[in-house]
Design a binder for these strands. Structure first.
Length: 359
DNA sequence: AACCCGGGGAA
DNA sequence: TTCCCAGGGTT
């Protein structure tokens, strides 16, 4: 018996598991899943993503790539297109890298130790614990946003969850509380409990089985927990997109530099530090790439896209060229191909509204 | 330790 | 608007 486990700890775990047995009605496609590939895929998709948003993506991925070998052998552009709109595209790159690694190094057998799982690209402490417990019944406690919220409230912990000390505190506490005899059930229970009862806003304290011993409930601090320390500064950026068109061809470039949307594609971009007129944007374009015989045919309205730490304002300017410039020839594709290419949301939105694409 | 990386839904 | 989501990687 671990002496550092108090009465409060035991009440928490026992009551949580009882709730899980009798009152947990949450349904998700990957629940009770034991195939580590499917568990891994669902966990990567759900990183910083709501279940409601990720579910459709999960189902499409499983349908198209029912086993990891299929994913490992898929074309990169195809996988990106399937991931399009889900955000955090490094997850998609890491997904493909890990699928390839497991295919080649592990011969399609998913690694079964916590250490090996944690070493996979795109798999951090949370995801490793999730795969280890759900897939292999190993005693590792998951610590995600749900868990930190539940623990910070029940144990009245005001340490900010986004600090090193906070992460250490919640990780150690979560591991103490885990029922080592049924790690998968316990982890499922605490996350479902956080998502359905101990919610971020208006939690259901009046029908919470833990409330009698919940420190935040006792001290009326439920609504200020968990604590966070960071304040995010949102940077404004202005994107002038030029659609260089030559007949049925159009210029599309991949985003490869260290910036947002790496791995997706876009039109010719000229970024300005402030909102500029179409005329000035065209002038800047001419300075950057000297194109002759160009004719503006259409200027779109302004589109906005809010990211966590940036706000993008974009305008799309259609430019007709007489011929494909030789130095840019490798970037021209048939307009018909656009539907197979993965774009950021702001471009997808424009393309859905623009009718030229079908002409 | 601080910062970067998307998009959407709920209040 | 603000918050935050089954977080992880880089500097």
């Amino acid at each position: 018996m671990n002496p550092s486990i108090s009465k409060q700890h035991r009440f928490f775990t026992r009551t949580l598991m009882r709730w899980h047995m009798h009152s947990n009605n949450r349904v998700m496609p990957w629940k009770f899943e034991k195939d580590p590939y499917k568990i891994w895929l669902s966990e990567i998709i759900l990183q910083q993503t709501r279940v409601a948003q990720g579910t459709a993506y999960y189902n499409r991925f499983i349908k198209k790539y029912p086993a990891i070998e299929k994913l490992a052998k898929a074309k990169e552009a195809e996988v990106f297109k399937l991931w399009e709109g889900l955000g955090y595209y490094s997850r998609c790159r890491n997904l493909m890298a890990t699928a390839t690694l497991i295919h080649e190094k592990y011969k399609n057998v998913f690694p079964s130790t916590y250490k090996e799982i944690l070493s996979l690209k795109g798999v951090g402490p949370y995801t490793a614990a999730a795969i280890a417990s759900f897939g292999f019944d190993l005693p590792y406690a998951v610590v995600d946003g749900n868990v930190m919220r539940v623990l910070s409230r029940f144990f009245g912990i005001f340490t900010p969850i986004d600090t090193t000390l906070g992460k250490k505190t919640f990780n150690e506490l979560a591991q103490l509380l885990l029922d080592p005899k049924q790690p998968a059930q316990y982890n499922q229970a605490i996350m479902d409990f956080g998502a359905t009862v101990c919610k971020p806003q208006s939690p259901l304290c009046n029908q919470c089985p833990l409330s009698q011993n919940c420190l935040a409930f006792k001290k009326k601090s439920v609504d200020i927990l968990p604590k966070k320390s960071k304040k995010i500064i949102v940077k404004q950026r202005f994107f002038n997109y030029f659609l260089l068109e030559v007949g049925s061809f159009i210029l599309i470039k991949p985003r490869t530099h260290k910036d947002i949307w790496k791995g997706l594609h876009e039109f010719l971009l000229s970024e300005t530090s402030s909102q500029v007129s179409t005329k000035d944007a065209m002038k800047k374009l001419s300075e950057e790439i000297g194109l002759s015989d160009k004719k503006t045919i259409e200027v779109s309205k302004l589109y906005k896209q809010k990211l966590t730490h940036q706000e993008i304002t974009a305008r799309f300017i259609r430019v007709q060229l007489d011929a494909i410039p030789s130095e840019l020839s490798s970037f021209f594709v048939q307009k018909k191909q656009l539907k197979k290419i993965a774009f950021p949301k702001i471009i997808t939105e424009y393309l859905e509204e623009a009718i030229f694409i079908n002409t």
